[in-house]
Design a protein around this nucleic acid. Structure first.
Length: 679
DNA sequence: GAGCACTGC
């Protein structure tokens, strides 16, 4: 058993260049290592360092963009070393630290290393830091680039132990990377394990859904039984439409002599159980086709895939600093992404990738995916950098974010009271406390304000549940009404925030029961995650003196909503009676309330519980006296998110009273405008 | 009438 593990190790491409790699690591302080999936770089390089005796003090730290990867890699490597997980080889991710004094190789998420840097300015624990999957260019990867580079320099300046940096990546813009790391050595490792043949469409396709269907049934007609197919589409709607079309075609056409074709959807909104169904083959005599979003590009690896159909599109989120608007739009993938998708056909054996776009179109794709740091809201990242004592103006970004993004982030941090001024972005006392929370500054501000509103516990519940997505379970077609009925039990006319708070409160009251979740069509995994976030936030509260001692013994819905305004004051919108649209007060942006919101008007059937706010129980609808007034659309709402999809939508919205703005944030810039318009 | 994917000692 162990012998085979060792044999497997020796067969990896990384093993063949072992000595070469070690020589390079020894002679250079920074090394870029390029190797494709299957080369064994993530599991082998840390072991090579350990076995070579080059590790004399400290650890090898190796970062991953995703939790699951950090955990599975450390499991694999501890097996290969024949040691218990958490001994010589361990991992650390949010909520879980599986390391010990003996740990020499530590796998972790990028976020963990960033948080560690906050408490250990020079990351003294580490002699080697390996940043893996660097080509993905997540915000955290980019921030870590700058941080480890500067720590390396400082450690050498102060004559501390040298920090060795290894950047590992699949394909990437080598020149750009090497230049940034002072023209360091670049080492290429032998290619992937299996061949994938790429077939481009001969002609331009107007309808990639149709092209996908044609390609799929051609594969189905000709390929051997167990050759499964993976299709990349952009979102839930497309995936549902595709799987139902596949079912209809297989049902209505005579596919005599062919094995059945079964389609499985795969996207993040599905509960864990249904994601597993797509992963596992449940029988022998059919062909499986998995229709997925880009979740199957990196996060989930499906076994048995021989064919990939790549539509060349993806849904991406982009932040516009001028309008403050997030947009979620279908865009063309990059060439690097196309190859990532192609590789999914060659995980276990040779495969084929069909691209429903022409070779010409491919040539016009961007070479690399734009780094996330260039297209996201930076307030959280900048608060963290400031807490590290970093000057943003001089920070050595590999790709510097746009001026507007940085300015908008400073402005927001100033408004939240986290920095002294935009010109002098020094952290205030509040800013220091805010930076301790691993959440968006808007919400850390709300938590810090909560003792004043005597609702610390409710706010912690609320922030915890807001940090998870997909609280509601996707019902099937046949139990949609049932799910709606169950969900409506939690709804209140106050809006979505207090509805979510109800769900979380009830979840805890029912001892986090799995069965209770199933009965109420709620996602147990998400609620459990929220529970753990809640615990973590409460611990941090203790450390930064946010005390719940003064908390009101009952839910005080007005105080909770006022407290939310202390962070979300820029997210307040006013109803335009004229056309039933909302206008965001801070920037005059026109928007609609998202149809999924309790306040959208599509949820007329708000049952609630019978009495009004009853002790620590569920927050129900308002008393009958007020009820009629509140059946109308809310005149003022506060929202968590504004996203441009098919329209500009406010998501997760709560009804507020206009006079609260003057009371809570008199300096917000639009308070007077509200008062003048009132009554 | 409708949400890509990640992450945080």
């Amino acid at each position: 058993m162990n012998k085979t593990l060792e044999e497997q190790r020796r067969q990896l491409p990384a093993y063949a260049v072992r000595q070469n790699i070690l020589n390079c690591i020894q002679t250079s302080s920074t090394l870029i290592l390029i190797g494709e999936t299957g080369s064994g770089k993530s599991t082998q390089i840390p072991q090579f360092i350990l076995e070579s005796g080059m590790l004399n003090k400290g650890m090898v730290g190796i970062t991953q963009p995703r939790r699951v990867a950090a955990i599975t890699l450390s499991k694999r490597v501890s097996q290969e070393k024949m040691r218990q997980l958490g001994d010589v080889v361990g991992y650390a991710v949010r909520f879980e630290n599986c390391t010990s004094e003996n740990t020499k190789i530590k796998y972790m998420t990028e976020g963990i290393l960033l948080r560690e840097a906050l408490n250990d300015r020079f990351l003294k624990k580490y002699q080697y830091i390996i940043l893996d999957e660097a080509h993905e260019r997540t915000v955290n990867t980019d921030v870590l680039f700058g941080i480890v580079k500067s720590i390396q320099k400082e450690r050498s300046m102060f004559r501390m132990q040298e920090l060795k940096i290894i950047i590992m990546s699949a394909t990437m813009d080598v020149d750009h990377f090497s230049k940034y790391f002072n023209n360091c050595t670049v080492l290429y490792m032998p290619g992937r394990m299996h061949q994938v043949q790429v077939m481009h469409s001969k002609h331009r396709q107007d309808d990639y859904m149709f092209a996908t269907l044609v390609t799929l049934f051609e594969i189905h007609r000709t390929a051997p039984l167990h050759h499964d197919v993976l299709v990349f589409l952009t979102g839930k709607d497309e995936i549902e439409s595709m799987t139902s079309q596949i079912r209809n075609i297989t049902r209505s056409h005579d596919l005599a002599g062919q094995p059945p074709l079964r389609a499985w959807p795969l996207h993040s909104a599905l509960p864990a159980q249904r994601q597993l169904e797509a992963f596992q083959r449940s029988g022998e005599n059919y062909r499986r086709v998995v229709v997925a979003t880009n979740i199957a590009e990196t996060s989930i690896t499906l076994p048995g895939i021989k064919y990939v159909i790549d539509t060349g599109v993806v849904k991406t989120r982009k932040f516009d600093p001028i309008t403050g608007l997030d947009s979620l739009k279908v865009t063309k993938i990059s060439q690097a992404q196309a190859w990532q998708r192609t590789g999914r056909a060659g995980r276990e054996s040779d495969g084929i990738c069909y691209r429903t776009y022409t070779a010409n179109e491919y040539d016009l794709f961007e070479k690399m995916t734009k780094p996330e740091i260039l297209r996201c809201n930076l307030s959280s990242t900048i608060l963290q950098l400031l807490a590290l004592g970093i000057n943003i103006e001089t920070f050595d970004f590999m790709d510097k974010p746009p001026r507007d993004s940085i300015e908008v982030a400073f402005k927001q941090l100033k408004q939240l009271g986290a920095i002294k001024s935009v010109q002098n972005p020094q952290l205030t006392e509040t800013g220091h406390r805010m930076s301790k929370f691993p959440i968006d500054p808007i919400y850390s501000k709300i938590i810090i304000s909560s003792p004043k509103f005597e609702c610390v516990n409710d706010i912690l519940d609320l922030v915890a549940i807001l940090s998870t997505e997909n609280v509601y379970c996707e019902p099937n077609q046949n139990n949609r009404d049932q799910a709606t009925a169950q969900h409506s039990k939690f709804q209140t006319r106050y809006g979505d925030h207090l509805t979510l708070l109800n769900i979380f409160t009830e979840y805890k009251k029912h001892n986090k029961s799995k069965q209770w979740c199933t009965e109420h069509f709620l996602n147990q995994k998400s609620l459990q995650y929220a529970f753990e976030v809640r615990q973590q936030l409460a611990e941090i509260c203790d450390n930064v003196n946010v005390s719940s001692q003064a908390d009101s013994p009952h839910h005080n819905v007005d105080q909770i909503r006022k407290c939310l305004i202390t962070g979300l004051f820029n997210n307040v919108a006013e109803l335009q009676q004229r056309d039933n649209h909302y206008i965001v007060m801070a920037n005059r942006q026109r928007a609609m309330i998202h149809p999924s919101s309790v306040l959208s008007g599509y949820h007329a059937n708000l049952n609630g519980f019978s009495s009004s706010s009853n002790g620590n129980g569920i927050i129900s609808n308002m008393g009958n006296k007020l009820k009629d007034a509140h059946n109308q659309k809310a005149n003022y709402v506060l929202f968590s998110e504004i996203v441009h999809t098919t329209q500009v939508y406010l998501r997760t919205a709560t009804r507020i009273e206009p006079e609260w703005i003057q009371e809570v944030v008199p300096d917000c810039g639009y308070a007077s405008r509200i008062n003048n318009n009132q009554l």
